[in-house]
Design a protein around this nucleic acid. Structure first.
Lengths: 226, 226
DNA sequence: CACATATTCTAACGATTATTAGATTGTAGG
DNA sequence: CCTACAATCTAATAATCGTTAGAATATGTG
């Protein structure tokens, strides 16, 4: 309109677009979600995302240049972490907006999740209260170090790949609720399938730690009790 | 790659990345911010963003394919609007994350804003209360149709380009607080400069309607009262 | 109908990006 | 020193994206 001095304002949007560009790649989004579970080395990130370490390094560089991640060196390893709580919240917001508006995403999600009846329909607060009362057992089926970096209150760490041989840790008489990294993660589905096959009453929730936190609910840290 | 051998999980991140890609261009972000002020025709969007209408159309097509905007035809004009409240909230979240982590953005912002002492330091709630009491006069200096689409409670519509000849509408004895489209918008700065030169006690806030709403505060709709 | 205007479509170009693979840097441990 | 390994850097490529300008489509008006 009356303004012809475009450049200073353009600079602002250009900076915000740096964040947008960082979030414009599927692989980088997957890395962000993995990092939302706690800090990880490049090697681990690459293997968990199923890509070459050199490609992971390149994507992490892009994330670092957008200041969404920070690094720490320990010996031979370099550990990446999200540069703030707000970054994982941004990931949740972005994913939720995508889910809201992209039918294709909702359809892909529905096809992936096995049975809808394994999903807990209850609200978060009441679920938390039942966990507090010991009415249900909440299990975190992610790797143990992700549990340590942050987990739901009253949850027990029971990584998926240890689940079968640690079944004795679980009470057979109480309902079990499993969770993992979030709505895109299949580990809790697998856990429910295994537990159901073994005769347990097991269901899952879609939340990961970031989604739980985004809902304004508390999160705890610390090692699993043996 | 030309081959479609993606794992089902990759499909999910790819869908979310559609939203990320849409937000990866400065021009598109500017269009989103403009659309957060209410629906607009392509022509108006192009002129307000300072770009060719054909380029605006191309960017809007990208936003439409990411389902972030929807259209409505009225005669010769096609009006674009954000496809939900969540889209403007996503814009706010993205901008805030950028502000939090990108020093370059904070520096560019500081250089753009004229005097920091023109900024209201008060909290939103107390400002709202003062506006309710009539202790201050809140003015919305955006174009009138943006005011109609949504504005802060108790705000009066006083578009920047009408401000000078409508000075009589303003009480000289009360403090004036101006706002416009948000932290990237300079209209409230210009309004404050003009009003101060005319002897009014005028300051500004950084919030636009989306930021105000993101803070959980109420927003009103409707034509300005003449 | 012809005409003006709003918008989209198309083709083309240079710029940017994703991915791959080889070479290089940095650290730990013998 | 040498070796092993994590991670980054570099170069090359194919693919995608942003921008421009001309052509086409759709609507309203005389």
């Amino acid at each position: 309109m009356w303004m012809n001095k475009r450049s200073p304002k353009d600079l602002l949007y250009e900076q915000v677009a740096r964040i947008g560009k960082a979030l414009a790649s599927p692989k980088r989004l997957e890395l962000v979600e993995l990092l939302a579970q706690g800090e990880k080395s490049v090697e681990l990130l690459a293997s968990q995302a199923g890509i070459d370490m050199r490609l992971a390094s390149a994507h992490l560089k892009a994330l670092r240049e957008a200041r969404l991640v920070e690094t720490r060196r320990d010996g031979k390893y370099i550990y990446y972490r999200l540069s703030g709580r707000d970054v994982s919240q941004l990931w949740v917001t972005l994913r939720e907006t995508a889910e809201e508006h992209l039918v294709e995403l909702r359809m892909a999600l529905e096809q992936m999740t096995a049975q809808p009846d394994t999903l807990v329909s209850e609200g978060r607060e009441s679920l938390l209260e039942k966990a507090r009362q010991g009415e249900i057992v909440m299990i975190d089926v992610r790797p143990a170090n992700e549990f340590s970096a942050g987990h739901l209150p009253f949850a027990r760490s029971l990584p998926l790949d240890e689940l079968e041989r640690r079944l004795a840790d679980l009470p057979a008489d109480r309902a079990i609720v499993a969770y993992c990294r979030g709505p895109f993660c299949l580990m809790s589905d697998q856990a429910v399938a295994l537990l159901t096959a073994k005769g347990y009453r097991a269901r899952k929730i879609l939340d990961g730690v970031s989604e739980w936190e985004a809902a304004g609910l508390p999160v705890e840290q610390g090692e699993p009790t043996a």
